[in-house]
């Protein structure tokens, strides 16, 4: 499960739409499963699932009719999963899609995407219409399902706590650029904040190896965010008298690098 995190307007939806062949990049090229994103072959298309931020397809149909219709398109359709999932989330499948609440519509769209057993599932803010309890429940379902079926899931979010539990890989998008892209465990183990007191700060004229951010505080001390290679030691500056090294939570790190 890859979590794509960025602030509102950082380009998450644009990146996803380019990947899905729904938008053309101004520059550069996009590839999906080894094929050009704008014209993937049928074999690749059949392995893809995509749920946009505000799913609004099939509004005039009853939920159950939509599922019946889709089942005829997909050879691998998992109707048992559809039934379980609608029951667990208390969705009345006799209702027309347009009559569902935004949260319900999101759940129906996710169920639809998962039932086709895609190899790659791309979700744009899959939990945006849900409350905190439902978000966690939904992400947990996704993680279990992904592990069972071997599905790769790419999901975008602007909420750090969405990622902390379930993402195995994290990508930070900021102002259209990918600032970080690494495994969650490695991210926490290889990034830290180093605070150097003012007396030693003068010796830090040059950027340290792996320095990502530098901030001077009002008392003359310097606060740095540094990254090390996996298995390597922190830079020698961490041993300077009075220097303090603290590991960072995902939220702290995100705020440090995008601010």
């Amino acid at each position: 499960m890859v979590g794509l995190i960025g602030r509102n307007g950082s380009g998450k939806t644009t990146l996803i739409r380019i990947l899905m062949g729904l938008a053309q990049p101004n520059a550069g090229r996009a590839w999906i499963c080894g094929e050009p994103a704008l014209s993937p072959g049928d074999a690749v298309k059949a392995r893809l699932g995509y749920v946009p931020q505000l799913p609004d397809a099939f509004g005039w149909m009853r939920v159950s009719d939509m599922f019946d219709l889709l089942a005829t398109f997909y050879p691998d359709w998992d109707s048992q999963f559809v039934q379980q999932s609608m029951q667990r989330w208390n969705v009345d499948t006799k209702k027309r899609l347009a009559r569902l609440s935004p949260g319900e519509r999101q759940r129906v769209a996710l169920t639809r995407a998962l039932a086709a057993r895609p190899q790659l599932l791309v979700l744009d803010e899959p939990a945006s219409a849900l409350d905190p309890v439902a978000r966690r429940e939904l992400l947990r379902e996704l993680a279990l399902r992904a592990a069972d079926s071997g599905t790769t899931i790419l999901f975008s979010t602007h909420i750090v706590s969405d990622l902390e539990r379930v993402a195995s890989r994290v990508a930070f998008l900021h102002e259209g650029r990918l600032l970080l892209d690494t495994s969650m465990d490695e991210l926490k183990e290889t990034h830290a904040r180093l605070t150097v007191p003012s007396v030693s700060a003068a010796s830090l004229a040059h950027a340290l190896p792996g320095e990502l951010r530098r901030r001077k505080r009002s008392d003359g001390s310097v606060s740095l965010v540094i990254a090390r290679q996996p298995g390597q030691d922190w830079p020698a500056a961490a041993q300077m008298p009075g220097a303090q090294l603290e590991t960072l939570s995902l939220e702290d790190l995100f705020i440090e690098v995008v601010e």
């Binding site: 499960m1 947990r140 993680a143 592990a147 539990r165 379930v166 195995s168």
Partner: peptide
């Protein structure tokens, strides 16, 4: 692994690691 992942809402891959 599934139990731990389910109860804590974490990724099963993490537990299995």
């Amino acid at each position: 692994v599934r139990d731990v992942a389910g109860v804590h809402g974490v990724n099963p891959v993490t537990v299995s690691r």
